[in-house]
Amino acid sequence: MIKKDVVVGIGEVLWDLLPQGKQIGGAPANFAYHVSQFGLNGCVVSAVGNDTLGLEIIENFKDKGLNCIIERISYPTGTVQVEIDDAGIPKYEITKYVAWDNIPYTAELEALAKNTKAVCFGSLAQRSAVSRNTINRFLDTIPRNEDSLVVFDINFRQDYYDKDIICKSMERCNILKINDEELVELGNMFGYEDIDFQDKCWILLEKYKLKTLILTCGINGSYVFTPGKVYFQATPCVKVEDTVGAGDSFTAAFVSCLLKGKSVEDAHLAAVQTSAFVCSVKGAMPVLPLQYVK
């Protein structure tokens, strides 16, 4: 049975093949899992293969109590080879032609869309026409009102993106999430090379009529731009184990707090604290301490 006011992460779900072993990953899954930890109706939408890796993902989500619509199809379950450098920064080698490239649009998915309060999607899962079409149909179906949140979290991975997909995605969202490196790439794409980073953000906010633009800058803090106001939070100093999934936890905490009625400033602080904690432990889906999810 589809719940009301669901918060959806739609796109890739996969195994991150890390030096210490495999862990479930994919930004939509990370997002939905952390949203659920904040007490909301999180749900991940994706596809896995008819293989052992796919079954393990579904069983893992059941064990975590994470709601999901995961179709099992005749493509292999996605994997990503992840190398972590000395600073804890991951480098990804993403397998092509996998299940999450072929997420089907089903009657169950349409029913979910009609009960969706917020959704987070990225550019990576749109590398395939099949999943891109499913994501766009889902976005077209969700109810749109003053309180609904549509988050586009840019993922510039390898060569799996282009200007047209990025533009259309920004037109569909009302919250844009981007990091400092992605902002440079986006600036180059749009001819904003010589413009100050904050001015780039103001231009994007206005051009795409966004409610919010989130810019994360690693150890250099993060910014939240809203019409007429910008917020800044310093990055907490923690011993970094790895940064896999930290950005997804930031987005999940921020969205969860807004949906709970908290201010942008409070949501920003919660997001910073949550992502710092995720950096301090291994893997993208740790259990969050209770003080973070109140």
Rank of each mutant, 00 (worst) to 15 (best):
V7Q: 02
V7N: 05
V8H: 02
G9E: 11
G11W: 14
E12K: 08
W15K: 02
W15V: 03
L17W: 03
L17F: 09
Q20M: 14
Q20E: 15
K22E: 05
I24W: 04
G26M: 08
F31I: 06
F31P: 06
A32F: 07
N41Y: 13
G42E: 07
G42Q: 05
C43E: 11
C43Y: 11
C43L: 14
V44H: 06
V45S: 04
S46Y: 10
D51G: 02
I58L: 09
E59D: 14
F61G: 01
K62I: 12
K64S: 09
L66E: 11
I69Y: 07
I70S: 01
E71Y: 04
Y75Q: 11
T77Y: 02
V80I: 03
I94R: 05
Y97F: 13
Y97K: 14
A99I: 12
W100I: 06
Y105E: 02
Y105W: 12
T106A: 01
T106R: 03
E108S: 09
L109T: 02
T116N: 09
K117V: 08
C120V: 15
F121A: 09
G122V: 13
A125H: 11
Q126L: 10
Q126E: 04
R127H: 07
R137G: 01
I142E: 10
P143M: 11
E146K: 15
L149R: 14
V150Q: 14
V151P: 04
F156I: 14
Y160H: 10
K163R: 15
K163F: 10
D164C: 10
I165W: 09
I165M: 15
S169N: 13
I178E: 03
V184A: 08
E185A: 12
G187F: 10
G187L: 09
N188G: 13
M189A: 07
D194G: 14
Q198G: 03
K207A: 08
L210D: 05
L213N: 12
T216A: 07
I219H: 00
G221C: 11
S222V: 04
Y223G: 06
P227T: 03
V230K: 15
Y231S: 04
F232V: 08
F232I: 06
A234V: 06
V240R: 00
G245C: 01
G245M: 02
D248G: 07
S249L: 04
F250M: 02
V255N: 01
H268C: 01
V272A: 00
Q273K: 13
Q273M: 07
T274Q: 06
S275H: 00
S275E: 00
A276N: 00
C279D: 00
S280A: 00
M285P: 05
P286A: 02
V287M: 10
L288F: 07
V293K: 03
